[in-house]
Amino acid sequence: MSAQPVKIKTVSILEDYTIDWTQKLGTGINGPVRPCQHKRSEDRFALKLLLDKPGARAEVNLHSRCSGHANIVKIIEVFSNEVQFPGEPAPKSRLLVVMELMDGGELFDRISKQKRFTERQAVILTKQIASAVLQCHSLNIAHRDLKPENLLLKDNSEDSPVKLSDFGFAKVDDGTLMTPHFTPYYVAPQVSTSLTPIAQLEYKLHF
């Protein structure tokens, strides 16, 4: 994948998309996710909204670099628009990230509902997750927040592919990144005590 920054459009997203502001598909580390529909094709997508700050642009760029992989949620296009949420005194500059829609929801919810998986199901899911992480690491990107809530299912079928999402904690790693960043309930003790570079540790701990 190209290392070039993702192209950010400054035209109004409403020229091309209809947004359902009443429904929330989820909430990432840095912003909510809502459904939207392309006006011409009528294809449905997920729309993530982030305050337009350097950290948000870094998140979008890193996600975009990885998103050509079959097990990473694909970014379709990105807009920078002024958006005013209810309760805000004035519009704020926000990034509107159009992504493929993952109708199956979070792997966390499937685990909670299904309780147990067959060995075959577990192997298939683990292989897909490992493949996504390897894609990130091949581009010198550490995700740093692997957890079931950040793994989304394409649909509700039993054999739905799983895809990695939410690059809010991701960071470029040339092999020397030592700064841990994580969701507390999922972090392994080694992350806060190890002297191993984060990308190497991320893969070893999970796989």
Rank of each mutant, 00 (worst) to 15 (best):
H63V: 04
H63K: 03
S64Q: 06
S64T: 07
R65S: 02
C66E: 02
G68N: 07
H69Y: 00
H69N: 09
A70K: 02
A70I: 08
N71W: 05
N71L: 07
I72T: 04
I75Y: 10
I76Y: 09
I76P: 02
I76H: 13
E77K: 14
E77Y: 04
V78T: 08
V78P: 05
V78D: 01
V78W: 12
V78H: 03
V78E: 02
F79C: 11
S80A: 12
S80T: 07
N81K: 10
N81D: 14
E82L: 15
V83K: 12
Q84V: 10
F85P: 06
F85M: 15
F85R: 15
G87M: 11
G87L: 13
E88Y: 07
E88H: 11
P89M: 06
A90F: 15
P91Y: 03
K92G: 11
L95F: 10
L96G: 00
L96A: 13
L96V: 03
L96D: 00
V97D: 10
V98D: 08
V98I: 14
V98F: 01
M99W: 02
M99H: 01
E100Y: 01
M102H: 06
M102T: 01
G105A: 06
E106P: 04
E106Y: 03
E106K: 13
L107S: 03
L107G: 06
L107V: 09
F108C: 05
F108V: 05
F108D: 11
I111F: 00
I111D: 00
S112L: 09
S112R: 10
K113Y: 08
K113D: 08
Q114D: 10
K115D: 05
K115A: 07
K115P: 05
